[in-house]
């Protein structure tokens, strides 16, 4: 994964997540999707569908079990993108 790719993915994730989180939360790569953003599981799964379309990939729900932070989600997306 190039740094550019990773940075672009993180930026897109932060933009999408900001629409779901309250205004006072500053979203960074280290933000925890569940504990910091209080996003329920269904909203998160719907967000994943949007992200899948943005990158034209499919993210298996099982793979999300190991994802807690924006950084981890970005790494997963980069990995799937590079494999597809």
């Amino acid at each position: 994964m190039t740094d550019n790719n990773y940075d672009e993915i993180v930026q897109l994730l932060c933009d999408r997540l900001s629409s779901l989180a309250s205004a006072d939360v500053n979203i960074t790569a280290e933000t925890n999707l569940i504990s910091d953003l209080s996003i329920d599981s269904i909203k998160l799964l719907n967000l994943i569908m949007e992200i899948e379309d943005a990158f034209d990939i499919s993210i298996p729900i099982n793979a999300l079990a190991d994802v807690q932070t924006v950084h981890e989600l970005a790494c997963l997306i980069a990995k799937i993108k590079s494999a597809s």
Binding site: D53, S58, P60
Partner: peptide, 27 residues
């Protein structure tokens, strides 16, 4: 059942056939 199976789980938007086909194509 899907979780128990260990298979990769992909969701499509409820009753949205265009979305379903998009995900089939990606597979």
């Amino acid at each position: 059942g899907c979780i128990l199976s260990g298979a990769e789980i992909i969701r499509f938007k409820h009753n949205d056939m265009a979305d379903m086909e998009k995900r089939l194509r990606r597979l």
